[in-house]
């Protein structure tokens, strides 16, 4: 950048932000970087926990890989070759350095790079999570805010009954029942969702319909209840009563006055529910035979594929942390007192 341009740029900046505003945005920057630093620190601590927890798993990897018939010399050789004789802390550091370079290591079970193994599965999981988010978040917000707006009305009662029954029915039941109804009795949808053979848009809809419905049931209930509670809490504040006394309609009271102040808690509830969609969907992936990361991790545990387990655990943690951090940032941005 030329010197003249830089000066001009600076002048525009100064004009755009008064001194006070630039002070505020600096404060905001500090807040945001604090959040990110905390997230990063959490990630390091979790990586430590994940690594040493998998170390504690019973059984010797070399022994398991070679089977019962292996000679002790062969086992010792393999241990040496895999670097298992190094001190655990050294291996942890190597692993951590590898992670920062995007090198997730090599799977013990089939000698493939873990990045490759995870890649396809993660795409599948994210697709499913994305579609579920697109369906469940708007529906939950609509139902939650609506229930709060018309509190104690038949609509509110209906939503309450619905969410409580969905919470109390386990997801395998929802999944099995929907297979029974939509795939077996009505024969509308395929019972299995092979991520691969999705050709057209209608195929995709058909393939995703049942897992998405099941997952939406699981994650929506909590979001609806938390949204309702957060909005009701702000409806009971004096400033919403003040809006009523100004002649505001109910819709205006809720959407203009209550909702912006409930954004923080709502964002947190949504993030908490959505974080479940990456790692917690093992039941749905199993029932619909959907090849996602949750299933990958369970397979990894059964084959004692430590690097794969660690990578999956880290992946879940990253997705969880990024959602929670995002929610925190929304909470900060929506509150002028924190901004």
């Amino acid at each position: 950048m030329q010197a003249g341009q830089a000066v001009l740029f600076w002048k525009v900046l100064r004009r755009g932000f008064s001194l006070r505003q630039s002070f505020i945005s600096l404060y905001l920057l500090v807040q945001v970087s604090k959040r990110l630093a905390i997230a990063l620190l959490t990630l390091v601590i979790v990586s430590f926990a994940v690594f040493f927890a998998t170390e504690l798993l019973p059984g010797d990897v070399a022994q398991i890989l070679l089977g019962q018939a292996a000679t002790p010399e062969a086992v010792a050789g393999l241990r040496e070759a895999m670097g298992l004789n190094e001190p655990a802390f050294h291996r942890f550091l190597f692993w951590l350095i590898g992670l920062t370079h995007g090198d997730l290591g090599i799977s013990y079970a089939n000698n493939m790079p873990i990045a490759e193994l995870i890649h396809g599965r993660l795409t599948n999981s994210l697709k499913l999570a994305g579609v579920t988010t697109l369906v469940s978040v708007p529906v939950s917000l609509f139902l939650g805010i609506g229930a709060a707006m018309w509190r104690n009305s038949p609509f509110d009662r209906m939503v309450s009954v619905l969410t409580i029954s969905v919470i109390s029915v386990p997801e395998f039941m929802v999944a099995t029942l929907s297979v029974l109804i939509f795939a077996v009795w009505l024969d509308w949808l395929p019972a299995l969702s092979f991520g691969a053979d999705v050709g057209s848009f209608s195929d995709m809809l058909r393939a995703y319909a049942m897992p998405v419905i099941t997952l939406s049931c699981v994650v929506s209930a909590q979001m609806i209840r938390m949204t309702r509670a957060a909005v009701i809490e702000t409806i009971n504040t004096p400033y919403v009563e003040m809006a009523l006394l100004k002649g505001a309609s109910r819709t205006r009271m809720v959407l203009v006055h209550a909702l912006p102040n409930a954004l923080g808690p709502i964002a947190n509830a949504v993030a908490l529910s959505l974080s479940y969609l990456v790692g917690g969907v093992i039941i749905v992936e199993t029932i619909f035979n959907y090849p996602g990361v949750a299933k990958l991790m369970v397979d990894a545990v059964s084959t004692r594929d430590l690097p794969l387990i660690q990578s999956c655990a880290m992946l879940f943690c990253v997705s969880y942390l990024s959602l929670i951090t995002l929610a925190d940032l929304i909470a900060i941005l929506s509150n002028p007192r924190l901004r």
């Binding site: 504040t237 004096p238 400033y239 003040m242 006394l245 912006p260 102040n261 929506s334 509150n335």
Partner: peptide, 15 residues
Amino acid sequence: AYVPQSAAAAFNPSK
């Protein structure tokens, strides 16, 4: 029109 007891509570903090 109404003038509230606590204006601090009657003003919406986010607007």
